Amino acid sequence: MAKKTKVIDTAQVARKLEIARTLNWVCYAGLLVLFAVWNLFLDGSVKWWLLQTVPLLLVLPGMWKRQQRSYLWLCFILLLYITAGIVDVMMPTRGWQHGVLTALSLILFVSAMMTSRWQVQLQNAQY
């Protein structure tokens, strides 16, 4: 029996990809701003700010170049932020920052994952 191939609407995938990339940049910038406000102005320190932002900055050049591997690494990095955010949200003494951290991390995780997938779909459709 022959294998069925799925026809991909490249225009629709390209549209989704651009929306996901925009969402990536909005959430990525949101996380960086959150860490700056949280650690430099509220109750953190420069050490914590560096600890939180450096992992995100490692994938910045690849995201700028739209490399699929960078989006995959971003997903791995975001798992740490999601885990820390969820643990801290469940503690009654924590502030609003942890909820924002969890929400931004989850949205960025899903959008980065879908960006990677749609990039591969577009690349495979071109061949």
Rank of each mutant, 00 (worst) to 15 (best):
G85L: 01
Q12R: 15
V33P: 01
R21T: 13
V87E: 12
F35M: 07
D43A: 12
V120R: 09
K16E: 15
L32D: 03
V110Q: 05
N39E: 10
H98L: 06
F109H: 05
M91Q: 15
L50A: 14
M90Y: 12
Y71I: 01
L51E: 14
T115L: 00
L80Q: 08
W64N: 07
S105W: 04
A14C: 05
V59K: 03
E18C: 02
Y71C: 06
L74W: 00
Q67P: 01
A125R: 03
T83C: 10
Y71H: 02
I86S: 07
F109R: 00
Q119A: 13
Y71E: 02
V87T: 10
V13D: 06
L104P: 02
M90I: 14
A103C: 07
M63N: 11
L51R: 07
A14Y: 05
M1D: 11
A20L: 12
F109A: 08
I86W: 07
R21D: 14
Q97T: 12
L60C: 10
A20G: 05
V120D: 12
W64M: 14
F109M: 10
L122F: 06
L32M: 09
L74M: 08
I82W: 00
F41C: 03
V110N: 01
K65S: 10
L79R: 00
L50T: 08
P61G: 11
L32K: 00
W64A: 13
L51H: 10
V87G: 03
S70L: 02
M1S: 15
I8N: 07
L108P: 04
T53P: 06
F76L: 11
S45K: 03
N124W: 09
W73R: 07
T93E: 15
Q97G: 11
P55N: 05
W73H: 09
L56M: 10
F41L: 11
T83Y: 11
R94A: 04
P92H: 07
S116C: 10
I107A: 14
V37Q: 07
F109T: 06
V89C: 11
S111W: 00
G44T: 01
S111G: 02
L31P: 05
V37N: 10
H98P: 00
V13S: 08
Y127F: 13
R66T: 13
L104V: 06
L79Q: 08
L78D: 00
L104N: 03
Q123I: 09
R94W: 02
W25E: 06
L108M: 04
T93V: 12
L104H: 02
L122G: 08
K65R: 13
S116P: 01
V37H: 05
W48E: 14
L57H: 08
